[in-house]
Simulated assay, not measured.
Amino acid sequence: MKVAFWVLAGLLALFYLYAGGKKVAQSKERLQPMMGWVDTVPMPLVRVIGALEILGAIGLILPPLTGIAAGLAIAAAAGLVLVQVGGIALHLSRGEGRLIGLNIGLLAAAAVTVWLGTAFV
């Protein structure tokens, strides 16, 4: 179970560091082609979402790696589940149901990571 956790947590962390980093660092114009929803969401909220994604990525890896408060990895994965619930809700509210495949996949991966994370508690 621990190997599966590390593989899944590592992949999620890489994805969220990349996606969150883009949201934190790039302008609305640079994000627009990849994330069409940024035109309807205030940029401070986009930055907060990006920061939460980065913190979630760090929370998936750092606590179990150090052995300090390893249960925080479960909280981080659960937080990323909530980020994806919000993403799905946003896409559905914009009539973009065809775009939620990635969100559903990330939600499922984060939910499995929550379960696998129980090996560290």
Rank of each mutant, 00 (worst) to 15 (best):
L90R: 00
R98E: 15
V38R: 09
P63Q: 05
L45H: 12
S27A: 13
M43K: 13
M34E: 14
A119Y: 02
A4P: 08
K28E: 14
I54P: 05
E53I: 08
V3P: 04
V83P: 09
G117H: 00
G56R: 12
T66N: 08
P44F: 12
I58V: 15
V48Y: 12
M35K: 12
A57R: 05
V114T: 07
L107H: 09
V7Y: 03
V85P: 01
G56I: 04
W115R: 04
V41H: 05
G87W: 00
I74E: 01
V85G: 02
N103V: 02
G117P: 01
P64S: 04
G87M: 00
L8V: 05
G10R: 14
A70P: 12
I100A: 03
Q84G: 04
L11K: 07
L65I: 05
A73I: 05
I68D: 09
I61T: 03
D39F: 03
V114S: 06
E29A: 15
A19W: 11
A78K: 01
A51C: 09
A51L: 14
G67S: 10
P33A: 07
I104L: 15
V81M: 14
Q32A: 13
H91A: 02
A69N: 08
A111Q: 04
V83S: 11
A13I: 07
V121Q: 09
G86K: 00
I88D: 02
A19M: 10
M35S: 13
K22N: 11
A13L: 10
T118D: 09
V114E: 09
L107S: 11
G36I: 03
A9T: 06
S93Q: 06
A75L: 15
F15T: 14
A13S: 14
A9N: 06
A78Q: 01
L12R: 00
L102R: 15
P42M: 14
N103E: 08
L55Y: 03
P63W: 01
T118R: 15
A69P: 06
K22D: 13
A109I: 02
L11S: 08
G105R: 06
A111D: 01
N103A: 10
G79L: 11
A13P: 08
L62R: 04
G117L: 00
V114N: 07
P63D: 04
R98D: 10
D39Y: 10
T113D: 00
W115A: 09
L80W: 03
I74P: 01
F120L: 03
G36V: 04
G117W: 02
L90G: 00
A13Y: 13
S27R: 13
M34K: 15
I100D: 05
G20W: 13
T113H: 00
P63F: 03
I68S: 11
V7M: 13
L52R: 14
V41D: 00
L17C: 08
V46I: 15
G59F: 11
V121G: 06
G56K: 07
P44W: 07
F120E: 00
